[in-house]
Amino acid sequence: MTFSLEGTDASIANALRRVMIAETPTVAIHFVRIENNTSPLNDEMLSHRLGLIPIVYRGDVRQLNSNRDCDCQGNCARCSVEFELHVRNDGEDTIEVTSHDLRALSDMAVPLDDETLPRGILICKLGKFQEIRLTAIATKGVGKEHAKWSPVSTAVFQYEPSIRLNYRLLDELSPQDRQNFVGSCPARVFEIQDGRVVIPDVYRCTYTEECMRWAEQVGKPDLVTVKQLEPPRFRFSVETTGSLKPAEIVQSCLITIQEKIRKIEDLLVTKQEEQQLPQ
C-alpha cells in the first residue's frame, strides 16, 4: 500500500514508520510444548521457525490481553491462541511440514494462508518415520520485543524529490547526448517523449545523483538539479508479512500514536493538578 503524507515534517513521518515496524501489536507463536520431535531440526530451531510464521488474528488484536498482564494462570482464550502440529511420515519419500499443518484449536486465528503461497510456509522436512508432535501458544506482542511480532516487511517513506531540468541547456544537447542523459539515471527517472525529456514519476528517483554527475562530465553542471521538495512531501510504502492488512497496520499505528499522545496529555494534566493543589 502506498499513501502520501503532506503538511508535516520528517519527525512525524518517521514516527509513523517506527511505530508501524516496532509497536504495532500482532499475534505470534511464543510458547511451544514439544511432545515428540524426531525431525532433523532441533527443538529450539523448530520453535524459532514456528515463531516467525505470520498468524492472522480474526478479532481485534488490540483487544487481546497481553499474556504477561492477563490474570489467568498460564494462558487463556483472552490472552492467547493455541495451535497444534502433528505430522508423521509413514511413507518412503521425504515430506514437507508447512504452516498448513499448523492447526488452530480455536477459530480466532489461523496461520497465514495466502494464494501466493499455495503450499504454505515450509517449517521442516521429515524423512521416513520421523515425527513432529507439539502444541504452540501464540500471544500478543510488538516488534520492539521480537521481530516475529513485527507486521511489516517494509514500511518506508520517501521524500518527494524536486527535479529541475534546464530545458534551455537540454535543447542544446544533440539527440544522442539527450539519450545518454536519460540513460545516465539508473532509476530511469527520465524518458523521452516526442523528443523532449520528461519525468513520468518523480518518486522513481533514488537520489543517486548519477544524472548530475553526467551533467558535470559533459561540462553542463546546471543541466539538472535534484533536491528534496521544500516543504517536504512524503510517499509511504507499507508491505506486510501477512499477519495484518496494510491498512490495518496504518490504522493500528495511528491508534498507538494517539494513545501515546493521550498518555502525555494525562501526565500533563495530573502535573498541573499537583501544582495547583497546595494553593
Binding site: P186, A187, R188, T206, T208, E209, E210
Partner: peptide
C-alpha cells in the same frame, strides 16, 4: 548495479 537501478 546500474541495470538494477543502483548507483554504479
Amino acid at each position: 548495479l546500474r541495470r538494477a537501478g543502483f548507483s554504479s
